[in-house]
């Protein structure tokens, strides 16, 4: 550093880079973390769980340690019938999303309601908890907020899970993790654009729709339809299953890969799935030697595809 210029230069460099980071990191994050969470954000956070990428509770990114979304048709304690509602069950040990851990990220109003009326501060990860979303007025504004049903109604996670039939359980958090893991987001976006996607892919999301979500997995290279509202266009579970097993069954020109491996070992009846035989039959169908393609196996309730479809059908 023989020259005075270099001393000045290094200092200026620090000022320039520091200034740049101030404007591009500090200001925006302050701005964005104070955004008020919408109902969409709250439901996403509670159904997805803490983290849907690599995380210490789920190092292999297979969807361990995620909450279960359930549709409640009767009160889990009294057994009385009630209006169907969605609840989010965190069995003991399931990590909470940042919405619960750091209520600050909910933004003003939602934070106060969730803490005071929803009592989310009392939730304890080691004992698990059940949450749902409710609405109330805060300083003249109608807001959605989180309710800790374990503290308020005494609903215990195991009890709720036991009271719900299998078809009313949705593994949305695990499904989202599989969406990240299988990297559907290299082809599909989860972000209708603000300029011209309204008619085809639906409304673009709003500023407060993402609090507590991670990763957001927007996707940047769109080679396929946006999926943020896909279940509003097409909510047929049967179509989805055929399409995932082999997209060419329902869309001959599709370039989507086959995701048959997500069916895992056995089908719904516990029979081993014979992939080789299926492919052979499919080839014969393609060559015109069969009139109908082979049947797509009905997935086992524990298979990965069931959870992925739960997630996709939740994208309303």
């Amino acid at each position: 550093m023989a020259f005075r210029e270099y001393k000045i230069g290094t200092r200026l460099f620090g000022v320039a880079l520091g200034g740049s980071m101030m404007i591009t990191l500090y200001f925006p994050t302050i701005d964005m973390t104070s955004v008020q969470a919408t109902e969409v954000a709250l439901r996403k956070a509670l159904s997805a769980g803490r983290q849907n990428g690599f995380a210490y509770e789920d190092p292999f990114v297979t969807g361990e340690g995620k909450p279960v979304t359930v549709v409640l048709r009767k009160d889990p304690v009294t057994g009385e019938k009630m209006e169907p509602m969605e609840a989010y069950v965190f069995p003991p040990g399931t990590p909470f999303p940042s919405a619960i851990r750091h209520p600050r990220t909910l933004g003003s109003g939602v934070k106060e309601l969730s803490l005071q009326q929803g009592r989310i501060g009392e939730a304890d990860e080691s004992r698990g908890a059940v949450f749902y979303v409710d609405h109330a007025t805060y300083q003249g504004e109608k807001l959605a907020y989180i309710v800790n049903a374990t503290a308020i109604k005494g609903w215990q996670p195991e009890q709720v899970l036991a009271s719900v039939p299998e078809e009313d359980k949705k593994y949305i958090g695990t499904g989202k993790t599989l969406f990240v893991r299988e990297q559907c987001w290299w082809c599909h976006t989860l972000l209708p654009e603000q300029t011209q996607d309204w008619q085809y892919f639906g409304v673009p999301p709003r500023l407060g729709d993402f609090n507590s979500e991670g990763p957001t997995a927007f996707g940047s290279d769109r080679k396929a339809p946006d999926l943020l509202h896909v279940a509003s266009r097409n909510s047929s579970r049967e179509w989805m299953l055929m399409h995932f097993f082999n997209p060419r069954l329902v869309q001959p020109h599709s370039i989507m890969p086959r995701f048959d491996y997500l069916w895992d070992e056995v089908d719904a009846n516990g029979n081993k799935i014979d992939y080789a035989a299926w492919r052979k039959a499919y080839e014969e169908y393609e060559e015109g030697k069969r009139i109908y393609p082979p049947e797509v196996p009905e997935p086992h309730p524990d298979s990965r595809i069931r959870k992925l479809v739960d997630f996709i059908l939740s994208l309303k």
Partner: peptide, 17 residues
């Protein structure tokens, strides 16, 4: 975002940062 569990738009923005 991965070390300190930053979420939402801050996560999306930092990804692109």
């Amino acid at each position: 975002p991965e070390w300190f569990q930053l979420t939402g738009l801050s996560e999306a923005y930092l990804t692109w940062w």
